[in-house]
Design a protein around this nucleic acid. Structure first.
Lengths: 214, 214, 214, 214
DNA sequence: ACGTGCGGGACATCCCGTTCGT
DNA sequence: ACGAACGGGATGTCCCGCACGT
C-alpha cells in the first residue's frame, strides 16, 4: 500500500556478524553520518571534514576510509536523512480516510520541518542548493521531490476514492501545492515558533476547506 | 496605496555625484554589486571575492574599499536584489480588482522565481541561508518576508472590500500560504520548466477556487 | 651646564603666523603624532596608518601629506618622544649635589618608565627594535643612548668634583650600568606595579651604597 | 642543587619515536623551530610563516599541522629558546664559591646576550614584547623572569653562606638589579662590540666591589 | 590641507586529499 | 580500521602608497 515512499534500506550493516573490526567500522560510519548531519545542517555543505571528524573523535583518515571523498559523504548523509524522514511520514499516514491521512502528512511534515531540528534544516538545504551549486546532488533531490509528490497524489486519489475528498479536483495539482507550501513555510522559519505554528494551522484549514466534499 | 512593498531606494550614488571622482566610485560600486549578484547566484554565497573582482576588472583592494568585508557585500547585494524584485511586483499589481491584483502577483512572482534567472535563485538562497549559516542576514530576510506577507494581506483585504474575494476567509492566512507556496515552488524547480509552469498554474487555479465569492 | 641632554626643538610651527591653513596643518600634524605615539606604543611599529588616521579623525591622505611615508612618521614620533623625555629629565636634575641629581635622575627615569604610560613603552620599543628589524631607527636610538650615558657621566663627575660621590670610581662605568639597569627594569614590567617600584628602590639603595664616599 | 633554573624538557619527540612516520614528524617539528628561531631573531616576531616554511623546505600546511597557529609557533620557539639558555647558564655556574658562580653567571649571560647572536636578540625581543603586543606570551615571560631572579638570589645567598659575599646585603635586591642590568645592556648593543664588552666588564667590577666582604 | 578611489601585494588561516605506517 | 605527516592551493583580510580631485 502506497509504496512510493519506501526507500531501499541501508544494506550496509547487515553482514556485520563477521568480525569485531567490521562491527566497529559500521559503528564509526554511523557516528560520522550523524555528526555530519548536524554540521551540514548548521554550516551548510561547506562544513569542514576536519570539524566533523573532530566531532566524532576520529581523524580525516577514517573519513576517507569510509567515504572516499567529501562529495560521497555529503551524498550519503542526504540519502540517510531522506530515508529517516520517509520512515516517519509512513508511520503517521498509516490509518484513516484519505483526507485524514493527507492532513496527518501535512501536519507532521510541517511540524517536523518547523521543529528546527538540524536534520530538517539539512533536507531543506539539499533542495535549495541542489539546483545551483551542487549539481551532483540534483538527481537525488529530484528523486525525492518526485517521490513525495507522487505519495501525496496517491493519498488524494485515495481520498477521492473513499469519498473523503471532493472528486472535482486535480490530485496532482494539490500534491504539488501541498509539497511546495510545506517547504516554503520552512524557508520563513525566522519567525518565532508560535507564528510558525499558527501559519501551519492556517494552511491546514485552507486545505480542509479546499478538499472537503460539497 | 499599498505602500508596504515600498523599499527605501539606494540613496548612495545620487547626491554626492557633484565631483567626478566620487561619481566614478559610485559607478564602480554599482558594477561590483551587479557582478556579485551574478556570481553569487551562479556559485552560491561562497563565491570568491577574487572572482567577482576579476569580473568587474578591479582588485580586491577596491572591493574592500567599498564594502569593508564580504559579509557586507553580500548584504548589499541582498538588499539590492530585494529592491529590484519589489519594483517589478509593484508594477504588475497596479491595476484591477483586489483578486486580479493578487492573482497577478502570484503569477508574476512564480514566473520570476521560476524563470530560473540567477537573480531569483540568489534571492531564494539568501532567504534559505539567512536562517542557518548567515545569521547576519536574518534580520533583513525577516523584514522582507514580513513586508511581503503584509502586502499580500492588503491585497486580499482590498479584494474583500470590493467584493472580488469572499469575505469569510482569513486574509492573513491566505497571505502566509501564498507567500510560502510561491517560494516553495521555486525550491522544486528541478523539473523541466513546463512542469514548473503547469504547477504554478495549478496553484493559481486552486487559489481562485478558494477565493471566489460564493 | 650639562647641555648634553638638550635636543634641537621642533622648528616646525614657528612661522605659523602666516595663514590659518598653516596653523591648522601644524595642529593636525601634532594630533597625528600624539595618536601615533599611543598606537605605536600599543601595537608596535607595525601599527597601521589607517588606524592611526582613524584615531585622529583624518584619512591616510593627510598622513602622507604630512610625513610622506610611514618610516618618516615613525621616525618623527620617536624623535618627539625623546625630546619630551629629555625635557622632563632636565627639570628634575636641576638642583642639588651631583649625587642628589644622579639619584633624582634614577628615580625619575625608573618611575617614568615604570609608569606604563604608552609614551615610555614606545621609547623602550624603539631601543629594542632599532637594533634588529628597523635599521633605519638605529642611528636615532644610538644617539639617544650615547646622549643619556654622557649626561649621566657628567652628573657622576660633577658629584666627584663636589665630593658627594667617591672619587675612586669610573664615572663612565657607573653611567653605563645605571642606564642599562633602568631600561632593564622596564623590560620586566610584567610584575605588578608594587614589585616594580620596590625593585627600583632597591636599585637606588645599591647605587647609594656604591657611590657614597668612604 | 639550585634547581630553580631547571626547565621541563621538551618531552615531545622522545617517547613515541617508535614509529618511523612520527619520528620524522618530530624531526620536522624541530627543524621548523630552529628555522623559526633564526628568522624571528632576524626579522622580528612578525616574520612571515611562508618564509620560515621555505627555510625548512616544507609548506605552510605542515606548519599548520604542527603548531596550529602562528601564535603557538612563536610560543614554542620562545619556550625552546628559554630552555637552551637555561642549559648554558647551568653549565657555567656549576663550580666555585657563591661569588664566583654569580660572577660567572653575569659574565656568561652578558657575553651571550652581547654576542649579538640572533638567538639572544630573539629572547630579548620576546621579553620586551610580551608586555605589550603579545600578551599571550606574558605568563611565560613572567615565569622566566621570576625563575631567573630566584636563581640569582640563591647564588647570592650561597655566597653569603660560604663567606664569599658580604652578609649585610639584600640578596633579592642584588638579584633583581643584576637581572635587569644584564638585559638592559643588551638593549644598548648598538655600539660596536668592544664597547659592549667593556661595559660588561665595568659592570662586573662594580658588582665585585659591591659584594666583596669587608 | 586634505579626502577618495584603487592597485598591488603580502600574510595567516584553513581545507581537501594522498601517502605511509600500524 | 584508522592515525599522522604533508602538499598544494584558495580565500578573506588588510595594508601601504599613489594619483587625482577640491
Amino acid at each position: 500500500m502506497l509504496p512510493s515512499m519506501v526507500v531501499p534500506t541501508s544494506r550496509y550493516a547487515e553482514d556485520m556478524a563477521s568480525t569485531r573490526r567490521v562491527a566497529q567500522g559500521a559503528a564509526t560510519r554511523t557516528r560520522i553520518i550523524d555528526a555530519a548531519t548536524e554540521r551540514l545542517a548548521e554550516v551548510g555543505p561547506d562544513a569542514s571534514l576536519t570539524v566533523i571528524a573532530n566531532d566524532v573523535g576520529v581523524t580525516k583518515g577514517a573519513m576517507y576510509h569510509h567515504f572516499g571523498s567529501k562529495e560521497r559523504l555529503v551524498e550519503e548523509v542526504y540519502k540517510e536523512a531522506i530515508r529517516r524522514h520517509a520512515d516517519r511520514i509512513l508511520v503517521v499516514t498509516e490509518h484513516g480516510s484519505g483526507r485524514e491521512r493527507l492532513m496527518a502528512l501535512i501536519m507532521e511534515t510541517a511540524s517536523l520541518y518547523g521543529s528546527g531540528s538540524p536534520f530538517y534544516r539539512l533536507l531543506l538545504r539539499l533542495h535549495a542548493e541542489a539546483g545551483a551549486s551542487r549539481p551532483h546532488l540534483a538527481p537525488i533531490a529530484r528523486r525525492v521531490q518526485r517521490r513525495q509528490v507522487r505519495f501525496v497524489t496517491e493519498l488524494v486519489e485515495l481520498g477521492q476514492a473513499d469519498g473523503s475528498i471532493r472528486a472535482d479536483i486535480d490530485a496532482g495539482a494539490v500534491a504539488h501545492v501541498v509539497n511546495a507550501t510545506v517547504q516554503g513555510l520552512l524557508i520563513q522559519d525566522l519567525e518565532p515558533l508560535e507564528i510558525q505554528k499558527s501559519a501551519t494551522e492556517q494552511f491546514g484549514a485552507l486545505v480542509e476547506r479546499l478538499l472537503a466534499p460539497a
